[in-house]
Design a protein around this nucleic acid. Structure first.
Lengths: 218, 218
DNA sequence: AATAATTTTTAGACGTGACTAAAAATTATA
DNA sequence: TATAATTTTTAGTCACGTCTAAAAATTATT
């Protein structure tokens, strides 16, 4: 069994490893992600190393063991299932779920999470489009690309977001950009990199930054 | 905001106060309830006293302030709503819910709990028949009496249990005694205090101990 | 290659919540 | 009422998870 604090470290290391694809995750990177100090990270890393969750060599960062990875995906599974529950059943909007899911993901009860999964109809994605690992920890990789790489005239289905901050998600709500919607690139503006796109037969302009935070499936 | 530990103490003091109706709750009683040591209780009591949750005078036990009572009923509200959720939606039996609800009751999110309440249809009782406080902390007192005080020929509706241990609840399941069922006392055996009762037109004998753990409403 | 800058680790401290052992206060008993 | 038994508190310690400040190791720069 792991403490909430340990679980937060495990999750942070997992996420950093996935979207950096570097062998060793640095102490500083973890500290930054968890808004804590490097010295605290060193302490925790030692403990996780003793518990066989990570492999650690001084000054060389950490790597999750298979056990550590499985632990991480299990926490992520719980987090994402709770997010689905909050949005589908309790009328939360997608920008409100994160904080609560951060708490709920630490609840210990295998029965709870498997029943919740069934109750929700075994969802494949969370409200932000991220895949939900199965109970064995397997996570299906989803083919997705940034809207920004589409060329004029190409289109795709919106399947996820990169940035999950409230500001960004609320902006998307306001523009009526949502998961599952078909987006077509009408024009790319070379000057500022902005995009003219078409959703629901309405045209709107989005900045390059937005285009780099929206995932689509061709 | 209170830590999980603080919340557990507040809840324990509340429960002890309710079903003992004594002015001051003793250090030892709290220690016993929480399976901890008296010295730990003294420490925590000092902290809760500083936080205006309890009134405390050395060697004279503690009493919850109005603020403390409100905090307690709010925790109990969360606990019982989660229990309803687990039984009604996630197929938990009434003897499995306690442990998980003990964790879920500490989740901090007013929106979560109010939406959950609505999602469940504003239930009035938890799976053990205990009343669920409203969002203002008001708890409706339910008229109930022990099955044991019924006389021969009298009957009532089963509305709750006193003991909530798995053993007892599973025993009730096995005998098909459940909340809402009509129970009639056919015979009281003076020798051992056991009861011959009728449920669903079936007669069965229950011990005096069982009769003293079942609440009915006349 | 030597020095500077950065990263990482160590050392020592602190708050929380727990414990043991011993002292103090209260309550019960002879 | 004096003594015994019990309850409660205090004093000191400990694990967890955090921090600051300083030392050590690594990486970058000239």
């Amino acid at each position: 069994m792991f403490s909430q604090s340990e679980e937060n470290y495990i999750k942070a290391i997992y996420h950093l490893a996935v979207d950096s694809s570097v062998k060793g995750i640095s102490t500083n990177a973890i500290a930054k992600k968890l808004a804590t100090k490097a010295s605290s990270v060193t302490d925790m890393i030692k403990k996780l190393s003793e518990k066989k969750v990570v492999v650690y060599k001084k000054y060389q960062g950490v790597t999750l063991t298979d056990f550590g990875k499985k632990t991480a995906t299990n926490i992520i599974r719980k987090h994402r299932l709770w997010e689905v529950f909050l949005v589908e059943k309790l009328n939360f909007s997608w920008d409100e779920v994160h904080e609560v899911a951060e708490q709920l993901e630490h609840i210990k009860s295998p029965k709870l999470i498997n029943e919740l999964d069934a109750f929700l109809g075994f969802p494949k994605r969370d409200p932000h489009g991220d895949p939900i690992p199965d109970s064995e920890g397997n996570l299906q990789i989803i083919e997705k690309s940034l809207l920004a790489i589409l060329n004029k005239g190409e289109e795709g289905i919106c399947v996820g977001v990169d940035d999950t901050s409230s500001e960004f998600l609320q902006f998307l709500d306001k523009q009526e950009i949502a998961l599952g919607k078909r987006i077509k690139v009408i024009e790319k503006e070379p000057f500022d990199g902005s995009f003219l796109i078409k959703i629901d037969d309405k045209e709107l302009s989005i900045s390059n930054k937005i285009a780099n935070n929206l995932y689509i499936q061709k």
